[in-house]
Design a protein around this nucleic acid. Structure first.
Lengths: 140, 140
DNA sequence: AAAAAATTGTTTGTATACAAAGGATTTAAA
DNA sequence: TTTAAATCCTTTGTATACAAACAATTTTTT
């Protein structure tokens, strides 16, 4: 750490990228036993928040490109984490739900994310944590 | 902004991901006229810092997987941004240099990054900027 | 020096990311 | 109402990301 040459540690794109890389990588490792990825976990959280969302709604909620989401949903359907059901009123739409298996693991999976968050923030004080989140939110 | 459901704005993995996504996307748009990506720009900055680095050295400097870097360097060689030369002492190694064309654009490209950084930070106070960078650095 | 270990870089396979274009369907306009 | 516009989602193409396995080449051990 902190052995980077002069300028890199001043570059926000670099710093944000590497901070994300670390958080993302740690969370992915934690999720590996479940056969889930960070992004797939995020989709489940979205669907637990509001089951039956369409891909477009999910895409907006998660601030994720629809083309990317399309692939993620495909894989999650194949691996049985979600279920797609056609909307009776609009044939363009498919409504998406967490599977039984996903709901069964919900408490466990949510606590994994909380644990991951705790790990990321454990080196910071209470004030720093609040400030850090605010700074990030203000960027989005 | 700030219309996300309850929990997402508390999740550091999510916040870091979206903050990075934004910074990364903005910088990529700015680089598009040059035919460069964020990552390729980063490689050039590394090589300007120390020309002749090996892929392994670059990989450590940029905290980037060697397999990923391999592909990036391939594309940059094809598009003429970098040049690879064999090391006379160790036939496993290739030393990497910025091309003439890259050096020619160096001042311009560096100021693009600076401008991008300015944009990212423009909504924050001087203290917030320093703190933000420190928090990110402490995470890496 | 011959065998074992380490290093360098590539390749393969899977999973994001996003731009751009396209097919199917619904809604709005003329 | 039938043409145009908008919406939903997928597909294609390019570029990261990273794990795992690999070939070529040193370096270390024995």
């Amino acid at each position: 750490m902190s052995n980077l040459p002069e300028d890199l540690p001043e570059c926000m794109v670099f710093l944000l990228g590497k901070a994300y890389q670390k958080a993302h990588g740690d969370f992915n490792k934690r999720l590996r036993p479940y056969g889930l990825t960070n992004m797939q976990h995020l989709v489940l959280e979205g669907l637990w928040y509001q089951p039956g969302m369409t891909a477009t709604e999910l895409s907006k909620l998660l601030i994720l490109d629809k083309a990317t989401l399309s692939g993620v949903l495909d894989r999650m359907t194949e691996t049985g984490w979600i279920v797609k059901r056609p909307d009776p009123e609009d044939r363009r739409i498919q409504r998406i739900y967490p599977s039984e298996q996903a709901n069964h693991l919900k408490p466990e999976l949510i606590s994994e994310r909380q644990e991951s968050n705790r790990e990321i923030l454990e080196h910071f004080s209470a004030e720093e944590r609040i400030l850090f989140k605010r700074l990030l939110r203000d960027m989005i």
